[in-house]
Amino acid sequence: MTAPRLKVSDLTLTVGTGAGALTLLSGLSLALAPGASLALTGRSGSGKSSLLHCLGGLLTPEEGTVTWQPEGAPSVILSAAEEGARAAFRRQHLGFVFQFFHLVPTLTALENVALMAELAGLGAPQARAEAMLEAVGLADRRHAFPETLSGGEQQRVAVARALVHGPAAVLADEPTGNLDAQTAETVAEVLFTQTRAVGASLVLVTHDAGLAAQADHTLALGGA
């Protein structure tokens, strides 16, 4: 049996302190196989984005562990790692897609993607980025700056950026939340197709039932 790519055990996450403290997740456990996709759904404030951030080592849970097993690399308990080690893990083995794209405005589409490859310490970042942009259908827009790209194009650049370094998983927070339905469909297709193409797992947060349905698994939080 293949070892899970991601294993979450007895996760408890609280936000705020004292009387204002709010427990978002309590005793949550899950496992995700390599190449599988998981959609996190639930109403606003149910803790789906917080769970995604815990998986990416951006938030530290009070209890429980988040363990990653990248292919060909030792497993890492990210929830127990130090800040520097978490950052290193993210740039080597994780890719992120944000709702508002967050591309660097002074870099072209190609450079935005290449920067991630460079941060991951990979050789020939430019060539990798070109290949990735071609894969997401933006080869002809590679020299365009973000401000001249449409929302859908920017998000496809963000997907290319998330995948250029061959990550173990892609974490996407509302990747289509800022797009119209037609563009959202295109972006979702690119996201799922390319994630599978590189063999990465995918965890995405979404309010869109259609998008969630495309995932292999769905986890509804907050009882929704």
């Binding site: 950052a87 993210r90 967050h102 991630m116």
Partner: peptide, 16 residues
Amino acid sequence: RQQLSALRILGAPGPF
């Protein structure tokens, strides 16, 4: 701030 925060989340180290 916003741009550098995004890069930080992507895995850029603090000194970057």
